[in-house]
């Protein structure tokens, strides 16, 4: 009778150990890979959304579609920060610099900057510029939003020339 009791306890302990080992292996080997893969997919997805917004802004400039308003939507799985700041002066206007930043757990943090040069990812220019974007400080303020859902509203206002260089004026809002 005593031996039977020991066998049951031993069986339970063995099953528990198997479960613990399985969970430990999952946490140590599988989970980091899953998190890493998810972060890489998020990074790619955000970059593509950024690139699509740039392509659409380029399309508006090339089509000379003054007065047309568009939206770019960014939906993130984690908290990120999107800001619009002023860059180089363009007469009374300013270069539009759009910056997206998010922290990652296992992969390097993501910093995307859309400026007159194009899109830079973590300081490296990965998509050169086709058109240069400017904003008028009188109607577009510097702005910043932190969260998981962003909407950038942009309206093309027309081309502007400054010291022989062509810029394209936009009105922008982060919502």
């Amino acid at each position: 009778m005593k031996e039977e009791g020991v066998s049951e306890v031993l069986g339970f302990v063995l099953i528990l150990m198997t479960c613990v080992i399985f969970l430990s292996l999952f946490t140590a080997a599988v989970l980091p890979n899953m998190i890493k893969e998810s972060e890489m997919q998020d990074t790619q997805s955000t970059f593509l959304q950024f690139s699509q917004m740039k392509s659409d802004m380029d399309t508006l400039c090339l089509a000379d579609a003054a007065g047309v308003r568009r939206y770019a939507v960014f939906t993130e799985s984690k908290t990120a920060r999107l800001s619009l700041s002023y860059g180089k002066p363009v007469g009374v206007l300013r270069e539009a610099v759009l910056t997206y930043e998010s922290e990652n757990i296992l992969t390097e943090k993501l910093r995307l900057v859309l400026s007159k040069d194009g899109i830079a990812k973590n300081g490296r220019l990965v998509l050169p510029s086709s058109c240069r974007f400017a904003v008028n400080p009188a109607d577009t303020a510097e702005q910043m939003k932190t969260g998981t859902d962003f909407r950038v509203e942009y309206t093309y206002l027309g081309p502007v020339t400054d010291h022989g260089a062509e810029w394209h004026l936009f009105s922008m809002r982060i919502l």
Partner: peptide, 10 residues
Amino acid sequence: ETTVFTALPA
């Protein structure tokens, strides 16, 4: 005189 740039997914 213009080259346009865009990106496609992996």
